[in-house]
Amino acid sequence: MKRFEYYQPRTLDEAFERMGNLKGAGKYVAGGTDVIVRLKQRALKVDALVSLRGIAGLGDIAHNGALSLGGCALFRDIERNEVIARDFPALHQAVSMLANPQVRNVATIGGNLCNAAPSADCAPPLLVMDAVITLEGPRGKRDVPIESFFKGPGATLVEAPEILTGITIPAITPGTGSAFLKMGRVSQDIAKVNAAALVVMDGEVCLKCRLSAGAVAPVPLRLKACEKLVEGRRIDHDLLEEVALTASREVSPITDVRSTDDYRRHIAGVLAKRALGDALKFSTF
């Protein structure tokens, strides 16, 4: 394996300074389940890793209506958090299905987002929940909506030496339900397609709808035409079929080793429809 230095700063300032001194030859690492694997595959060439695991507070999960996740919150901890399972089921489901237990035991939500795979399982739930991402750098903090965070496969708004330090999900309102679905070859595979839905219901009428899908475009997508179709209406069988058709038209998938563009287009529609139906079941009003 290629040799590399491994730094373990204890504070954000120490991390910024270290990364600055490395002048582009370093990379931050949290759980390492993407970064270390890419280093081993020689897909990533750096001289040094700067570990974020030792920085106090970055792994915290807090709930006061709104949900705050530290950038280094472990999937293991998110999966076992009862408030998240109850109030943010789409996120709970995505995290429980992600990779395998050994990976979830060390991988972090911030790492999943910064890796910026179009198939990142955390992205669709966070998109439908209107999550806000906090980035911190030597010159201060900035908050960015997750919708503008991804720039392309592997590319995000993060500018070195910034660190993704937190994710905030607004409190849910009464009548909210959400769900996540994923289609892969076997359970621990990267998704061929994934999708999340969130609805806020007032009786039978959908006040607010959010739909998103991953692995069907260069970045995880909001399905805005579908959302428009659903808001203000009763969600019945015919509407769900309309959503499936619209979602299939809204995505722009590619053919690769995991699937074909045609199949992904079809499945994006199916998953959008089913996720919406599931979100409806989770909604309590």
Binding site: Y6, Q8, V29, G32, T33, I36, V37, K40, L49, S51, R53, R76, P101, Q102, V103, N105, V106
Partner: peptide, 13 residues
């Protein structure tokens, strides 16, 4: 006490 893949677990940690 927690299972991890030791092949991608940096030894310094």
């Amino acid at each position: 006490g927690i299972p991890v893949d030791s092949c991608i677990y940096p030894s310094f940690e």
